[in-house]
Computed example of a mutant assay.
Amino acid sequence: MSVRLPACVQRVSLLAALLMTPLLTTPARAQEAAQTTVAVAGTSQRLEAPAGAHIAKLVALDNPRLISLSHDGEMFIGSQADTVYRLTPPYDNAQELVRLDDYPHSAVRRGEALYVATTDALLRADYHTGATLDADDFHQVAAIPGGGGHNSRSLSLGPDGRLYLSLGIQGNCSNQYLGGDYPFDDRRGGVMVLDESGAKPAWRPYVSGLRNPVGLAWRDDGTLYANNNGPDHWGFKRPREVLVRAEPGRFFGMPWFQWIDGEVKRDNCIDTAPPKPASAVTPPVATFPARSAPMGLTFLPDGHPLGVDLISVLHGSWGTAPTGSASGDPATRREPALMGVRLDADGHHGKVMPLVTGFQDAEGRRWARPVGVVVGPDNTVYFTTDAGETGLYRLTVGD
């Protein structure tokens, strides 16, 4: 079943046209917001967004990635430019808080410390609001399985006060797994939690079998959800990207199994024995079109004017129709977007709908590619883009 954009939208995007209702259609708690064209303040661009939305570029940043908010309102943004940025309300000015090698993709504050996840290490520095830092203030808390391929490391502070980290396997079919007898460097593909109960902090598997999970978000009942980037060797249409409910111990199958048309299918690109059988694979909560590259993820508070439970950022990949290679017509590439997800009462099934589109034109040219997303206590949504008009953006609804 396709999600139908309201008639007031003059351009039906390829992403919306290809969007299928995932898994189970759930009753909407509110009508979908009518969409309209919105001028993006601070740029010459326009986007399609819910009626009453206001979007503005707040500040330019160099290749920004994930965003976190501290308890005191300070914002931290990692980047591919070896920089961790700090911003304070109204978030229209950014400081280079610290420069760190090895891709500081994400940073979070916990108490009087700032933690940064690079590709191969979790780093910590003593920190208080407004403090200045340099690279020498950081020390390694725990090594992270590093290496090439998917090299982003997403850090999240759980409601239990523990640190959670997501990381992907190296490629489409890499024999890597969070658990079993796999060597440390091959313990990739899922979410880990830092065990600090012993003399030395150590990573423990939390959920496994995810090719490249990037966005992490916590529901108010303490359940973790994760976005996952699926493989690209199946072509342009399969498998669909997945949003999962990452309850501890869950196995999502990859790279040995893929979720195809509502069923678990064996992926013959890897011939090693899977660590768990197909019957152990947990179905996703919702799906997005293949090659959409889901990134940031955030829950919205109850009653938020956008009328959805989650925002999932789609970065858009380089794949083109019909084969999925990069050599086809750029106009067929999946569009970057901010998507909304409405969950059913128990949070196991979701309905997906477009919230903000228009980052890509009819010829496939992209003026921005959103990555990170977070919601502030005043219902304001902030998101980053790491290509084109790079920087931090603000989305509000209403006066």
Rank of each mutant, 00 (worst) to 15 (best):
L297K: 05
L297I: 04
L297A: 00
L297P: 01
L297D: 03
T298E: 07
T298R: 09
T298S: 07
T298L: 11
T298G: 11
F299E: 09
F299T: 13
L300S: 06
P301M: 08
P301A: 13
D302F: 10
D302T: 14
D302S: 12
D302Q: 13
G303L: 09
G303F: 06
G303M: 06
G303R: 10
G303H: 05
H304P: 07
H304L: 04
H304Q: 08
H304N: 05
P305R: 00
P305I: 01
P305C: 06
P305H: 02
P305F: 03
L306K: 04
G307P: 08
G307M: 09
G307K: 15
G307T: 10
V308H: 05
V308D: 02
V308K: 00
D309M: 02
D309K: 01
D309P: 03
D309G: 02
L310M: 14
I311F: 03
I311A: 05
S312W: 04
S312G: 15
S312V: 14
S312N: 12
S312D: 08
S312P: 06
V313N: 02
V313D: 01
V313A: 01
L314M: 04
L314P: 08
L314C: 05
H315L: 12
H315P: 04
H315Y: 15
G316H: 05
G316F: 03
G316P: 05
G316K: 08
G316S: 07
S317A: 12
S317R: 10
W318S: 06
W318D: 13
G319C: 14
G319Q: 14
G319H: 11
G319A: 15
G319K: 13
T320A: 07
T320D: 07
A321N: 11
A321I: 05
P322Q: 01
P322I: 02
P322R: 01
P322C: 02
P322M: 00
P322E: 03
T323I: 09
T323D: 13
T323V: 10
T323Y: 12
G324H: 04
G324R: 03
G324S: 03
G324I: 02
S325Y: 10
A326W: 12
A326E: 14
A326D: 12
A326I: 15
A326V: 15
S327P: 14
S327L: 14
S327H: 15
S327D: 11
S327M: 12
S327F: 13
G328T: 10
G328C: 08
G328E: 05
D329T: 15
D329V: 15
D329C: 15
D329N: 14
D329M: 12
P330N: 15
P330A: 13
A331S: 10
A331T: 12
A331M: 05
A331W: 01
T332L: 01
T332S: 01
T332E: 00
R333N: 00
R333I: 02
